[in-house]
Design a protein around this nucleic acid. Structure first.
Length: 582
RNA sequence: GCCAGAAUAGCUCAGUGGCAGAGCAGCUCACUCGUAAUGAGCAGGUCGUGGGUUCAAAUCCCACUUCUGGCUCCA
């Protein structure tokens, strides 16, 4: 562990120091550049510059070349402590640095690092010498706009992102990884595999599910509904729009308006498209007097919501304006809450396992400064969340004060096949809506009491989940999810009839299958099926026809020969039932 | 929303002011072929949209739309 930390520490220094070298190179090439900040980040570093003109890819190459020269000059990184006045003199031409200086508390030690002719205001730590940077171990990747200190009112600087590693070999591995990420990009695969699209003429951030994508969604939804019904949930369907008054009661028009689509006027009334399902579920709750005997209520809905996202933030399926949440609301008594939370967490983990995700980390967000609800409820809520995480033995972090104003929450991040974390599941207390809607239940003592309410989405949204799923599997879905599970390929046209017969039998056994009886040659058909990432290709010719068998070729290229048709069907069905990859 | 870049055939892309191209996919025809591309032919475009400059615009300029990389945002 100590060794691990030392490695981390070393990488951090390397990255931070390379950022300084880049800043030096930029200043040499553009003496008027004003420096922002340049920290190390995951896999590399960035540095922000205020420059009179925008940087081009050619500039990046120049900068990179200059950096290599600097590195080879073996400058040492020298740390110096200076007074505020000295620092101010040192950075008199660097307004952003002066701004940072001004904000440092007076008692704090001010350090600067110097290498070659370049000095930067910096806490450190750094390497001892530029020679510790492998000139073939780094690469500048992209240039992007970034607001000074992340504030929208501030000027926009140009940020150069770079990656740096201890050796050229590690850099190559990282670049290979970036290529792999690009290959698996759900937008690219979505097009190649004909899964979904968006349309310029119809509006951004709105997803069209094509037959193959929709097929996968159907399988996901079917599984989701069945599991919910098996786990004590009821399923609701609610409308897509509601009157302004409803959103006033819920508080959405006060706190969430900028994320909502503009209202439409119908019969002199303003109607809003729903950005959330909760108020609708609450209306169902309030349609009757509820007894403690009725609780807990667990109501789930695949509810399609629309939220206004700023134009620059949309991203494939991951960030959209219209999406379907796998939403549910649990309404229960305070005594029931601990058990309910534990059940939700268990259910969630089961769901993730089914879809092939096993590395999961929890993030517990507690009470922020501004919040509603009493102290006792909050601490009970946080307590039940924490207990559930611990009972499931999940790795977790606490985000102190990171909860919403209306309640604490657990978010789950799942790790995909490339080791990237995605925030998906959220389990969220709500002390606000039950109050606003005056939700009650009649308790054992005959008195009306306020129930607890928990929002939860396991997969998050179907769109985003689908995006993650595509990238996790690189488009090669496990058999149970694959839109097409098998293709029957005759070696030549005379066996078309037998191919169709086999396909029919699989179809009767609920396997999604096609007979490839076109005029192409067998090799072309195999290639075609391979490119579509169909799990199984069933090859057949004279031998198979005479013996009523097939030969399976998996998309990994493995062959299983001479299976009777019935054996082939049970083979595939078994893989489907067990939710295996192949 | 902001900064920067991009948009050419269904897809991937070439084309820097002078007749709009290629490969794949599609269609037609031929072929009895055993585990990743058989061959030949045909068809396919208001060069994202609108305006401007020019004898002439895919190409230069302006606006808009959408996408990409970031920033910001995500009660």
């Amino acid at each position: 562990m100590a060794e691990h930390n030392r490695q981390e520490e070393k990488l951090l220094k390397l990255r931070h120091s390379t950022a300084h070298v880049m800043a030096e190179a930029v200043l040499q090439l553009f003496p008027d550049a004003k420096l922002g900040i340049g920290p190390p980040i995951e896999n590399g570093f960035y540095y922000d510059f205020d420059l009179p003109s925008s940087l081009t890819p050619d500039n990046l190459e120049e900068i990179e070349k200059r950096m290599k020269e600097i590195v080879k000059q073996n400058h040492s990184f020298k740390r110096k402590i200076v007074s505020k006045a000295e620092a101010r003199e040192l950075f008199k031409n660097q307004p952003y640095k002066i701004e940072l200086l001004d904000e440092l508390p007076d008692n704090e030690e001010i350090s600067v690092y110097e290498q070659g002719g370049f000095t930067d205001l910096c806490k450190g730590p750094h390497l001892d010498n530029t020679s510790e940077i492998d000139p073939e171990g780094f690469k500048l990747l992209t240039v992007a706009g970034a607001y000074w200190r992340g504030k929208e009112r501030n000027p926009m600087l140009q940020r150069i992102y770079g990656t740096v590693w201890q050796s050229a070999k590690e850099l190559r591995t990282h670049l290979q990884q970036l290529k792999e990420i690009e290959q698996r990009d759900h937008r690219k695969l979505g097009k190649e595999l004909d899964l979904f699209s968006t349309h310029e003429e119809a509006g951004p951030g709105l997803i069209y599910w094509h037959p193959k994508g929709a097929r996968i969604r159907l399988v996901i939804e079917d599984y989701w509904r069945r599991e919910h019904l098996k786990n004590g949930y009821e399923i609701l369907f609610t409308p897509h729009i509601g009157k302004a008054q409803l959103w006033e009661t819920s508080g959405h028009l006060d706190f969430y308006r900028e994320s909502m689509y503009s209202p439409m006027k119908v019969d002199e009334q303003d109607f809003y498209v729903k950005p959330m399902n909760c108020p609708f579920h609450i209306l169902v709750y309030k349609s009757d007097i509820r007894s403690y005997r009725d609780l807990p209520m667990r109501w789930a809905e695949l509810g399609t919501v629309y939220r206004y996202e700023r134009s620059g933030v949309m991203h494939g399926l991951m960030r959209v304006r219209g999406f379907t949440q796998d939403d549910a609301h649990i309404i229960c008594t305070p005594e029931q809450i601990e058990g309910e939370i534990l059940e939700v967490l268990r259910f969630s983990l089961k769901m993730w396992a089914a879809f092939g995700f096993s590395e999961i980390k929890a993030y517990l967000a507690t009470r922020p400064k501004k919040s509603v609800g009493d102290e006792k409820s909050w601490s009970q809520a946080v307590d039940s969340l924490e207990k559930a995480i611990e009972a499931e033995g999940l790795d977790y972090e606490v985000d102190e004060g990171g909860g919403a104003f209306y309640g604490p929450k657990i978010d789950l991040k799942v790790k995909d096949a490339l080791g990237r974390e995605w925030q998906m599941t959220t389990i969220q207390f709500d002390f606000n809506l039950p109050e606003r809607f005056d939700m009650t239940f009649v308790d054992r003592d005959g008195r009306e009491k306020r129930p607890y309410m928990v929002h939860r989405a396991l997969l998050g949204s179907l769109e985003r989940f689908f995006g993650v799923l595509i990238e996790h599997y690189g488009g090669a879905f496990p058999v149970w999810l694959a839109p097409l599970q098998a293709v029957v390929i005759p070696v030549a046209p005379p066996f078309n009839q037998y191919a169709e017969k086999v396909a029919k039998k699989l179809e009767d056994a609920d396997i999604r299958v096609e007979a490839s009886v076109g005029e192409q040659r067998m090799n072309a058909k195999i290639r075609d099926a391979q490119n579509k990432k169909v799990p199984y290709m069933l090859i057949l010719g004279e031998k198979e026809r005479s013996e009523s068998t097939v030969s399976i070729r998996t998309r990994k290229g493995e062959q299983i020969k001479d299976l009777k048709i019935g054996e082939c069907i049970s083979y595939i069905q078994d893989k489907i039932d067990k939710k295996e990859l192949l």
